[in-house]
Every structure is written in structure tokens, then in C-alpha cells.
């Protein structure tokens, strides 16, 4: 055992224990750690935006080859003057905080929403609808080297699972017709497919959450307490 002498590691370890104290009950240690977390994270993201986004995307192109005053006094002297438009729109975004003029933030919001909508129509259609449908249109009988052997049977069965599994699950979500007769059977099968799928998601979620705990315990054990 070789307990760390770094103050940063100790702070990290103490904060870890403060957050875990929530498992006992909500208390002031947890709330303090939570407040520090939110404050520092937001501050870090702001600083990151300042250096890597504003400076790189806005300030450096605007001031390239000129001075601060050059930008202020003669903004149109450079080809980058177009950047004043998004800068202005960005500032309008901040008006959201002021009730009287809050409506102005709709302009930049409209820009972001419009761009997102234009992009989503195309990429969703191309890769989530067409490509996925294409991958679902599988042969319902598959041969292996011209014969229907065990390998071909397995492939055929798997194709059926994909094709009918997807169709049944879609049928369950299809509310335009009443779920009666064949549709009802299909929809019921659809629920089963979805349930198995959700079960798989649950299993995977357990795995994910435990991994996070393992990461933390490892920090306490190896970095803080120095037990390797």
C-alpha cells in the first residue's frame, strides 16, 4: 500500500466519497460536491468554447492581418466580414434572457433549427430509412453452394428473424388499422421481438453502469490508496 501524497488525488478521493454519501441519504456533502461539479463543468465548457470555438472560428479569422481597432473601425475591409452576421445572430441568442426582447432569439434559433431540419431530412432518409430497408430485404430462402444444407438453414432462419421480426415490430407501432386477425398476431409477435430487444438493452445497461463503478473503485484502490 502506497497512499498518494498528491493533493489533487486526495481532493478527487474525498469528492468521490462525498458523492457516494448520497447512497446513505441526501446530505450537505453531496450537495456541495454537486454544486462544485455543475459550476466547474459549466466553467470549463465556457473556457473551452472561448479558446477553441470563438477564438478559432470568429476572432482569429476576423483579426487576421489586422489589429483589434482595424476590425472595429473598418469591418468590411476583409473578406471575413461575413462573420459579423453570425456574431450578431449569436448575440441575439442571448436576448432570450431578457423577457421584453426575448423574441429576437428566435432568429438564431430558426437558423439552427432550419439547418438541422434540412440536414436531417436527407441523412435520415439516406442512411436510416433506405439503407436500413435495403438491409432488411433479405432472401427468404438461402442456399449454400447450391444446396439447402444446415448452413443454409441457419442463414435462412436468421434472415426470417430479421425480416419478420422487423415487420412485426413495425406492425405493433402501426395504429392506422385495428389490431385484429393477422395484424393482431403480427403485432403480438412484434411485442415479443421488442421485449427481447429491451431485455438486451437492460443487460447492456447493467454492464455499462457497473463499468463506471469499476472505474471509480479502481481510482480509489490504485491511485489513491496505491494498492496495485
Amino acid at each position: 500500500m502506497n497512499i498518494s501524497s498528491e493533493i489533487g488525488v486526495w481532493i478527487g478521493a474525498v469528492l468521490t466519497l462525498c458523492i457516494w454519501s448520497f447512497l446513505w441519504k441526501d446530505n450537505f456533502l453531496y450537495k456541495t460536491a454537486e454544486a462544485i461539479f455543475i459550476g466547474c463543468s459549466a466553467g470549463y465548457i465556457f473556457s473551452k468554447l472561448f479558446h477553441e470555438s470563438f477564438m478559432a472560428v470568429l476572432w482569429n479569422p476576423l483579426t487576421e492581418g489586422t489589429t483589434f481597432w482595424g476590425v472595429i473601425t473598418n469591418p468590411l475591409s476583409k473578406g471575413n466580414a461575413f462573420l459579423f452576421i453570425p456574431f450578431f445572430l449569436g448575440l441575439l441568442m442571448i436576448t432570450r434572457l431578457f423577457p421584453g426582447i426575448g423574441w429576437m432569439s428566435r432568429w438564431p434559433m430558426a437558423f439552427i433549427v432550419g439547418l438541422g431540419a434540412g440536414m436531417n431530412i436527407f441523412i435520415s432518409l439516406q442512411s436510416s430509412v433506405v439503407a436500413q430497408l435495403h438491409a432488411t430485404m433479405l432472401p427468404l430462402v438461402k442456399f449454400h453452394g447450391g444446396v439447402f444444407d444446415m448452413t443454409a438453414f441457419v442463414d435462412t432462419f436468421n434472415n426470417w428473424v430479421i425480416v419478420f421480426g422487423t415487420l412485426c415490430a413495425l406492425m405493433y407501432f402501426f395504429f392506422s388499422i385495428e389490431h385484429k386477425g393477422l395484424v393482431s398476431v403480427g403485432a403480438r409477435m412484434g411485442i415479443y421481438v421488442l421485449m427481447i430487444s429491451f431485455g438486451a438493452s437492460f443487460g447492456a445497461t447493467v454492464m455499462a453502469r457497473i463499468s463506471l463503478l469499476i472505474g471509480r473503485v479502481r481510482f480509489l484502490k490504485e491511485v489513491w490508496l496505491g494498492i496495485v
Partner: peptide, 30 residues
Amino acid sequence: WLMNYVNTAGQRAILLGAAIGIIAISIKII
């Protein structure tokens, strides 16, 4: 097998539904 076939079938149905929903809402927005 469960992940690659049954889960894929279920998730694909959700994906298709969501994608069509996104396309519809995007058109409505524009």
C-alpha cells in the same frame, strides 16, 4: 445471436419509425 438478429429487428423497427418521424417533423419545420 440475440444482439445481431432479434435485437437488430426490434431496434431497426424503432429506428425506421423514428427516422420517418424525424423526416416528417423536419418537413413541417421547414
